[in-house]
Amino acid sequence: MSAPNKSYDPVEVEALKPEAVERAREDALEAIAAAGDLEELHEVRIAHAGDRSPLALANREIGALPPKARADAGKRVGRARGAVNKALAARLTELEAERDERVLVEEAVDVTLPARRTPVGARHPLTTLMERIEDVFVAMGYEVAEGPEAEAEWFNFDALNIAPDHPARSEHDTFFLHGPGGGEGSADAADGPGSGVVLRTHTSPVQIRSLLDREPPVYVVCPGRVFRTDELDATHTPVFHQVELLAVDEGLTMADLRGTLDHMVGALFGPDIRTRLRPNYFPFTEPSAEMDMVCYVCRGESVGNPDRPCRTCSSEGWIELGGCGMVNPRVLTACGVDPERYSGFAFGFGIERMLMFRHNVEDMRDMVEGDVRFTRPFGTEI
Protein backbone atom coordinates (compact mmCIF):
# COMPACT_ATOMS: atom_id res chain seq x y z
CA MET A 1 0.00 0.00 0.00
CA SER A 2 1.45 3.40 -1.01
CA ALA A 3 1.77 6.34 1.37
CA PRO A 4 -0.54 9.41 1.04
CA ASN A 5 0.57 11.99 -1.48
CA LYS A 6 1.03 15.03 0.78
CA SER A 7 2.29 17.16 -2.07
CA TYR A 8 -1.00 16.79 -3.95
CA ASP A 9 -2.82 20.17 -4.11
CA PRO A 10 -6.53 19.79 -5.00
CA VAL A 11 -8.73 22.56 -6.38
CA GLU A 12 -9.07 25.34 -3.78
CA VAL A 13 -12.40 25.43 -1.87
CA GLU A 14 -14.65 28.22 -3.19
CA ALA A 15 -15.42 29.76 0.23
CA LEU A 16 -11.71 30.07 0.99
CA LYS A 17 -10.73 31.97 -2.10
CA PRO A 18 -9.17 35.35 -1.27
CA GLU A 19 -11.89 37.27 -3.13
CA ALA A 20 -14.67 35.34 -1.31
CA VAL A 21 -13.16 35.99 2.12
CA GLU A 22 -12.61 39.67 1.28
CA ARG A 23 -16.17 39.99 0.03
CA ALA A 24 -17.54 38.45 3.26
CA ARG A 25 -15.40 40.83 5.31
CA GLU A 26 -16.57 43.89 3.36
CA ASP A 27 -20.21 42.83 3.62
CA ALA A 28 -19.85 42.44 7.40
CA LEU A 29 -18.16 45.81 7.84
CA GLU A 30 -20.82 47.57 5.76
CA ALA A 31 -23.62 45.94 7.78
CA ILE A 32 -21.92 46.89 11.05
CA ALA A 33 -21.55 50.51 9.97
CA ALA A 34 -25.20 50.62 8.89
CA ALA A 35 -26.58 49.29 12.21
CA GLY A 36 -28.64 52.14 13.72
CA ASP A 37 -29.23 50.76 17.21
CA LEU A 38 -28.20 47.96 19.52
CA GLU A 39 -30.97 45.66 18.34
CA GLU A 40 -29.88 45.96 14.69
CA LEU A 41 -26.26 45.43 15.71
CA HIS A 42 -27.27 42.24 17.49
CA GLU A 43 -28.84 40.94 14.29
CA VAL A 44 -25.70 41.90 12.31
CA ARG A 45 -23.53 40.02 14.81
CA ILE A 46 -25.57 36.86 14.30
CA ALA A 47 -25.50 37.20 10.48
CA HIS A 48 -21.79 38.05 10.06
CA ALA A 49 -20.06 36.72 13.20
CA GLY A 50 -22.30 33.88 14.27
CA ASP A 51 -21.90 30.16 13.80
CA ARG A 52 -23.69 30.22 10.43
CA SER A 53 -22.00 33.36 9.08
CA PRO A 54 -19.97 33.15 5.79
CA LEU A 55 -16.65 33.56 7.57
CA ALA A 56 -17.53 30.91 10.16
CA LEU A 57 -18.49 28.46 7.42
CA ALA A 58 -15.29 29.27 5.52
CA ASN A 59 -13.28 28.59 8.67
CA ARG A 60 -14.79 25.11 8.81
CA GLU A 61 -13.59 24.36 5.29
CA ILE A 62 -9.92 24.89 6.16
CA GLY A 63 -9.65 21.26 7.24
CA ALA A 64 -10.39 20.15 3.68
CA LEU A 65 -7.23 21.77 2.35
CA PRO A 66 -3.84 20.04 2.16
CA PRO A 67 -1.36 20.95 4.89
CA LYS A 68 0.56 23.41 2.73
CA ALA A 69 -2.58 25.43 1.91
CA ARG A 70 -4.11 25.46 5.41
CA ALA A 71 -1.77 27.99 6.97
CA ASP A 72 -2.35 30.62 4.32
CA ALA A 73 -6.14 30.11 4.32
CA GLY A 74 -6.25 30.18 8.11
CA LYS A 75 -4.39 33.48 8.27
CA ARG A 76 -6.64 34.97 5.63
CA VAL A 77 -9.88 33.95 7.37
CA GLY A 78 -8.52 34.86 10.82
CA ARG A 79 -7.60 38.38 9.72
CA ALA A 80 -11.08 38.84 8.24
CA ARG A 81 -12.84 37.56 11.37
CA GLY A 82 -10.63 39.71 13.58
CA ALA A 83 -11.52 42.81 11.57
CA VAL A 84 -15.21 42.01 11.85
CA ASN A 85 -15.03 41.47 15.63
CA LYS A 86 -13.05 44.67 16.09
CA ALA A 87 -15.61 46.62 14.07
CA LEU A 88 -18.43 45.05 16.10
CA ALA A 89 -16.82 46.09 19.38
CA ALA A 90 -16.21 49.63 18.17
CA ARG A 91 -19.77 50.01 16.87
CA LEU A 92 -21.18 48.57 20.11
CA THR A 93 -19.32 51.21 22.11
CA GLU A 94 -20.68 53.98 19.85
CA LEU A 95 -24.29 52.77 20.03
CA GLU A 96 -24.17 52.34 23.82
CA ALA A 97 -22.87 55.87 24.20
CA GLU A 98 -25.66 57.19 21.94
CA ARG A 99 -28.23 55.25 23.96
CA ASP A 100 -26.95 56.64 27.25
CA GLU A 101 -27.05 60.20 25.92
CA ARG A 102 -30.60 59.69 24.67
CA VAL A 103 -31.73 58.26 28.00
CA LEU A 104 -30.27 61.23 29.85
CA VAL A 105 -32.29 63.57 27.65
CA GLU A 106 -35.54 61.60 27.43
CA GLU A 107 -35.63 60.51 31.08
CA ALA A 108 -34.25 63.66 32.63
CA VAL A 109 -35.76 64.58 36.03
CA ASP A 110 -36.36 68.21 36.90
CA VAL A 111 -35.42 68.23 40.59
CA THR A 112 -36.80 71.76 40.93
CA LEU A 113 -40.40 70.55 40.40
CA PRO A 114 -42.48 69.74 43.50
CA ALA A 115 -42.67 66.05 44.28
CA ARG A 116 -45.84 64.15 43.50
CA ARG A 117 -46.95 62.78 46.85
CA THR A 118 -48.87 59.55 46.69
CA PRO A 119 -51.69 59.80 49.24
CA VAL A 120 -51.39 56.97 51.73
CA GLY A 121 -54.84 57.52 53.16
CA ALA A 122 -57.12 60.15 54.60
CA ARG A 123 -58.08 61.40 58.03
CA HIS A 124 -61.52 60.20 58.94
CA PRO A 125 -64.14 62.96 58.98
CA LEU A 126 -65.28 61.84 62.44
CA THR A 127 -61.80 62.62 63.76
CA THR A 128 -61.62 66.04 62.14
CA LEU A 129 -65.15 66.92 63.29
CA MET A 130 -64.37 65.97 66.90
CA GLU A 131 -61.21 68.05 66.80
CA ARG A 132 -63.13 71.01 65.40
CA ILE A 133 -65.69 70.75 68.21
CA GLU A 134 -62.87 70.52 70.75
CA ASP A 135 -61.33 73.70 69.30
CA VAL A 136 -64.65 75.55 69.71
CA PHE A 137 -64.81 74.75 73.43
CA VAL A 138 -61.09 75.11 74.11
CA ALA A 139 -61.39 78.64 72.72
CA MET A 140 -64.11 79.22 75.33
CA GLY A 141 -61.80 78.10 78.15
CA TYR A 142 -62.84 74.44 78.43
CA GLU A 143 -60.40 71.61 79.04
CA VAL A 144 -60.40 68.38 76.99
CA ALA A 145 -60.81 65.38 79.33
CA GLU A 146 -60.54 61.68 78.56
CA GLY A 147 -61.27 58.46 80.40
CA PRO A 148 -61.18 54.65 80.05
CA GLU A 149 -63.54 52.87 77.68
CA ALA A 150 -63.91 49.92 80.09
CA GLU A 151 -65.68 51.55 83.00
CA ALA A 152 -67.05 50.57 86.40
CA GLU A 153 -70.82 50.58 86.76
CA TRP A 154 -70.56 53.19 89.50
CA PHE A 155 -69.03 55.75 87.15
CA ASN A 156 -71.24 54.79 84.21
CA PHE A 157 -74.58 54.56 86.07
CA ASP A 158 -74.71 55.04 89.86
CA ALA A 159 -72.87 58.35 90.05
CA LEU A 160 -75.14 59.66 87.30
CA ASN A 161 -78.30 58.91 89.28
CA ILE A 162 -79.26 55.97 87.04
CA ALA A 163 -81.10 53.54 89.30
CA PRO A 164 -80.11 49.84 89.49
CA ASP A 165 -83.39 48.83 87.83
CA HIS A 166 -83.08 51.34 84.98
CA PRO A 167 -83.54 49.69 81.53
CA ALA A 168 -80.22 51.12 80.33
CA ARG A 169 -78.42 48.85 82.82
CA SER A 170 -79.76 45.65 81.28
CA GLU A 171 -77.69 43.38 79.10
CA HIS A 172 -80.01 44.24 76.22
CA ASP A 173 -78.55 47.76 76.15
CA THR A 174 -75.08 47.49 77.70
CA PHE A 175 -71.97 45.41 77.07
CA PHE A 176 -70.91 43.91 80.40
CA LEU A 177 -67.32 42.77 80.87
CA HIS A 178 -67.86 41.72 84.51
CA GLY A 179 -71.13 41.73 86.37
CA PRO A 180 -73.70 43.17 86.25
CA GLY A 181 -73.42 44.00 89.88
CA GLY A 182 -75.55 46.93 90.95
CA GLY A 183 -73.77 49.85 92.54
CA GLU A 184 -73.81 50.83 96.17
CA GLY A 185 -73.87 54.57 95.66
CA SER A 186 -70.27 55.43 96.53
CA ALA A 187 -66.96 55.73 94.74
CA ASP A 188 -65.59 52.79 96.75
CA ALA A 189 -68.09 50.54 94.98
CA ALA A 190 -66.29 51.12 91.68
CA ASP A 191 -63.53 48.72 92.68
CA GLY A 192 -65.55 46.41 94.89
CA PRO A 193 -67.38 43.18 94.13
CA GLY A 194 -70.72 44.98 94.04
CA SER A 195 -69.89 46.93 90.86
CA GLY A 196 -69.68 45.37 87.42
CA VAL A 197 -67.43 46.53 84.60
CA VAL A 198 -69.00 47.69 81.34
CA LEU A 199 -67.98 49.20 78.06
CA ARG A 200 -69.07 52.77 78.70
CA THR A 201 -72.42 53.64 77.14
CA HIS A 202 -71.69 57.38 77.07
CA THR A 203 -68.79 59.70 77.87
CA SER A 204 -70.53 60.98 81.03
CA PRO A 205 -68.22 58.86 83.27
CA VAL A 206 -65.43 61.19 82.19
CA GLN A 207 -67.43 64.05 83.70
CA ILE A 208 -67.68 62.15 86.98
CA ARG A 209 -63.95 61.47 87.01
CA SER A 210 -63.30 65.15 86.24
CA LEU A 211 -65.38 66.25 89.23
CA LEU A 212 -63.58 63.77 91.48
CA ASP A 213 -60.13 64.84 90.28
CA ARG A 214 -60.66 68.63 90.20
CA GLU A 215 -61.88 71.30 92.54
CA PRO A 216 -64.64 73.55 91.14
CA PRO A 217 -64.86 75.49 88.97
CA VAL A 218 -64.74 72.70 86.35
CA TYR A 219 -65.14 73.26 82.63
CA VAL A 220 -64.44 70.14 80.55
CA VAL A 221 -65.39 68.76 77.15
CA CYS A 222 -65.27 64.97 76.85
CA PRO A 223 -64.98 63.39 73.38
CA GLY A 224 -64.65 59.66 72.95
CA ARG A 225 -65.90 56.31 71.75
CA VAL A 226 -68.89 54.62 73.38
CA PHE A 227 -70.60 51.24 73.05
CA ARG A 228 -74.20 50.05 73.01
CA THR A 229 -75.81 46.79 71.94
CA ASP A 230 -77.29 48.13 68.70
CA GLU A 231 -77.27 46.29 65.40
CA LEU A 232 -75.23 47.88 62.63
CA ASP A 233 -77.56 49.41 60.05
CA ALA A 234 -78.02 52.66 58.16
CA THR A 235 -78.77 54.69 61.31
CA HIS A 236 -77.28 52.65 64.18
CA THR A 237 -73.91 51.23 65.12
CA PRO A 238 -72.75 49.42 68.28
CA VAL A 239 -69.63 51.60 68.43
CA PHE A 240 -69.98 55.34 67.96
CA HIS A 241 -68.58 58.65 69.21
CA GLN A 242 -69.91 61.29 71.56
CA VAL A 243 -68.88 64.70 72.76
CA GLU A 244 -70.17 65.87 76.13
CA LEU A 245 -69.45 69.03 78.05
CA LEU A 246 -69.69 69.82 81.73
CA ALA A 247 -69.50 73.14 83.51
CA VAL A 248 -69.67 73.38 87.31
CA ASP A 249 -69.23 76.75 88.97
CA GLU A 250 -71.00 79.17 91.26
CA GLY A 251 -74.12 80.78 89.85
CA LEU A 252 -74.49 78.87 86.58
CA THR A 253 -78.02 78.82 85.12
CA MET A 254 -79.93 77.56 82.11
CA ALA A 255 -79.16 80.88 80.45
CA ASP A 256 -75.45 80.04 80.55
CA LEU A 257 -76.23 76.64 79.02
CA ARG A 258 -78.34 78.21 76.27
CA GLY A 259 -75.67 80.78 75.43
CA THR A 260 -72.93 78.13 75.31
CA LEU A 261 -74.92 75.89 72.99
CA ASP A 262 -75.89 78.79 70.73
CA HIS A 263 -72.22 79.66 70.36
CA MET A 264 -71.35 76.04 69.50
CA VAL A 265 -74.08 75.76 66.87
CA GLY A 266 -73.10 79.10 65.36
CA ALA A 267 -69.46 78.06 65.15
CA LEU A 268 -70.28 74.72 63.49
CA PHE A 269 -73.27 75.57 61.28
CA GLY A 270 -73.29 79.34 60.86
CA PRO A 271 -74.21 82.38 62.98
CA ASP A 272 -77.77 82.59 61.66
CA ILE A 273 -78.86 79.14 62.89
CA ARG A 274 -81.59 79.39 65.53
CA THR A 275 -81.97 76.91 68.39
CA ARG A 276 -84.69 75.85 70.79
CA LEU A 277 -85.00 73.77 73.96
CA ARG A 278 -87.78 71.24 74.54
CA PRO A 279 -88.50 69.85 78.02
CA ASN A 280 -87.33 66.27 78.56
CA TYR A 281 -86.09 63.96 81.31
CA PHE A 282 -82.63 62.57 82.03
CA PRO A 283 -81.62 61.07 85.40
CA PHE A 284 -78.42 63.08 85.61
CA THR A 285 -79.86 66.55 84.83
CA GLU A 286 -82.72 68.51 86.39
CA PRO A 287 -84.28 70.36 84.65
CA SER A 288 -83.54 68.55 81.37
CA ALA A 289 -84.16 69.45 77.75
CA GLU A 290 -83.64 68.34 74.19
CA MET A 291 -81.88 70.87 72.02
CA ASP A 292 -82.98 71.41 68.41
CA MET A 293 -81.59 73.68 65.75
CA VAL A 294 -83.38 75.03 62.72
CA CYS A 295 -82.65 72.97 59.62
CA TYR A 296 -79.55 74.42 58.03
CA VAL A 297 -80.68 73.24 54.58
CA CYS A 298 -84.23 74.60 54.27
CA ARG A 299 -84.10 77.08 57.19
CA GLY A 300 -87.60 75.87 58.14
CA GLU A 301 -89.16 76.89 54.83
CA SER A 302 -90.14 73.29 54.00
CA VAL A 303 -92.69 73.13 56.83
CA GLY A 304 -96.16 72.92 55.30
CA ASN A 305 -94.69 73.51 51.84
CA PRO A 306 -95.14 70.38 49.67
CA ASP A 307 -93.49 72.16 46.75
CA ARG A 308 -90.21 72.35 48.64
CA PRO A 309 -89.67 69.15 50.65
CA CYS A 310 -86.49 68.78 52.71
CA ARG A 311 -84.92 65.37 53.16
CA THR A 312 -82.55 66.56 55.90
CA CYS A 313 -85.24 67.51 58.43
CA SER A 314 -88.12 65.53 56.84
CA SER A 315 -89.86 68.91 56.29
CA GLU A 316 -90.18 69.44 60.04
CA GLY A 317 -87.97 72.53 60.06
CA TRP A 318 -85.94 71.45 63.10
CA ILE A 319 -83.12 68.97 63.71
CA GLU A 320 -82.54 67.35 67.10
CA LEU A 321 -78.93 67.67 68.30
CA GLY A 322 -78.82 66.14 71.77
CA GLY A 323 -79.82 66.26 75.42
CA CYS A 324 -78.83 68.87 77.95
CA GLY A 325 -79.79 70.33 81.29
CA MET A 326 -78.63 71.48 84.70
CA VAL A 327 -76.57 68.89 86.58
CA ASN A 328 -78.73 66.98 89.05
CA PRO A 329 -77.76 67.85 92.67
CA ARG A 330 -77.50 64.12 93.38
CA VAL A 331 -74.70 63.85 90.82
CA LEU A 332 -72.84 66.73 92.47
CA THR A 333 -73.27 65.12 95.88
CA ALA A 334 -71.98 61.76 94.63
CA CYS A 335 -68.82 63.52 93.44
CA GLY A 336 -68.29 65.43 96.66
CA VAL A 337 -69.42 68.81 95.32
CA ASP A 338 -71.66 70.99 97.48
CA PRO A 339 -74.89 71.51 95.49
CA GLU A 340 -75.86 74.43 97.75
CA ARG A 341 -72.83 76.36 96.58
CA TYR A 342 -72.23 75.10 93.07
CA SER A 343 -74.43 74.43 90.08
CA GLY A 344 -73.61 73.12 86.66
CA PHE A 345 -74.88 72.26 83.22
CA ALA A 346 -74.13 69.44 80.79
CA PHE A 347 -74.76 68.63 77.17
CA GLY A 348 -74.08 65.60 74.98
CA PHE A 349 -74.52 64.63 71.34
CA GLY A 350 -73.38 62.01 68.85
CA ILE A 351 -70.65 62.84 66.36
CA GLU A 352 -71.94 60.40 63.72
CA ARG A 353 -75.33 62.05 63.82
CA MET A 354 -73.83 65.50 63.43
CA LEU A 355 -71.66 64.28 60.53
CA MET A 356 -74.81 62.94 58.82
CA PHE A 357 -76.48 66.33 59.30
CA ARG A 358 -73.58 68.41 58.05
CA HIS A 359 -72.75 66.33 54.98
CA ASN A 360 -75.98 64.47 54.11
CA VAL A 361 -74.46 61.04 54.81
CA GLU A 362 -77.34 58.59 54.41
CA ASP A 363 -75.79 55.33 55.64
CA MET A 364 -73.84 55.14 58.91
CA ARG A 365 -72.15 51.95 57.70
CA ASP A 366 -70.09 54.05 55.29
CA MET A 367 -68.36 55.59 58.30
CA VAL A 368 -67.06 52.30 59.68
CA GLU A 369 -66.06 50.33 56.57
CA GLY A 370 -62.69 52.10 56.19
CA ASP A 371 -63.06 52.88 52.49
CA VAL A 372 -60.93 55.93 51.58
CA ARG A 373 -63.41 56.71 48.81
CA PHE A 374 -65.72 57.82 51.62
CA THR A 375 -63.17 59.94 53.49
CA ARG A 376 -61.44 61.68 50.55
CA PRO A 377 -64.43 63.79 49.42
CA PHE A 378 -64.35 65.54 52.80
CA GLY A 379 -61.04 67.14 51.82
CA THR A 380 -59.10 65.43 54.60
CA GLU A 381 -56.38 63.67 52.60
CA ILE A 382 -52.91 63.50 54.15
Rank of each mutant, 00 (worst) to 15 (best):
G266V: 00
G266S: 11
G266N: 03
G266K: 12
A267F: 02
A267S: 15
A267N: 13
L268D: 08
L268Q: 06
F269K: 01
F269S: 13
F269W: 11
F269I: 04
F269Q: 09
G270I: 11
G270L: 14
P271R: 14
D272P: 10
D272I: 03
D272T: 14
I273Q: 12
R274D: 15
T275N: 10
T275M: 14
T275S: 14
T275Y: 01
R276C: 09
R278V: 09
R278H: 08
R278F: 02
R278T: 07
P279N: 10
P279V: 09
P279H: 13
N280K: 07
Y281K: 09
Y281G: 00
Y281S: 07
F282S: 01
F282G: 00
F282W: 09
F282Q: 04
P283M: 08
P283W: 06
F284E: 03
T285R: 10
E286K: 12
E286G: 05
P287N: 10
P287C: 12
P287K: 14
S288L: 10
S288G: 13
A289M: 13
A289D: 00
A289V: 13
A289G: 02
E290L: 03
E290C: 04
E290P: 05
M291W: 07
M291P: 02
M291E: 08
M291K: 06
D292V: 03
M293Y: 09
M293A: 11
M293H: 05
V294A: 11
V294K: 08
C295D: 04
C295Y: 04
C295H: 06
Y296M: 14
Y296P: 01
V297R: 14
C298A: 06
C298W: 05
R299W: 05
R299F: 07
R299C: 07
G300K: 03
G300Q: 02
G300R: 04
G300M: 06
S302F: 01
S302W: 04
V303E: 01
V303A: 05
V303N: 09
V303C: 05
V303T: 07
G304W: 05
N305Q: 07
N305C: 08
N305S: 05
P306R: 12
P306C: 14
P306A: 12
P306Q: 13
D307F: 02
D307G: 15
D307I: 00
R308L: 11
P309M: 09
P309V: 01
P309N: 09
P309Y: 10
C310V: 03
T312P: 03
T312I: 13
C313Q: 10
C313K: 06
C313L: 10
C313V: 08
S314D: 10
S314P: 00
S315A: 05
S315V: 05
S315Y: 05
G317S: 11
W318K: 07
I319N: 12
I319A: 07
E320A: 11
L321S: 02
L321N: 02
G322D: 00
G322I: 06
G322P: 12
G322N: 11
G323M: 08
G323A: 08
C324H: 06
C324E: 00
C324T: 13
C324I: 02
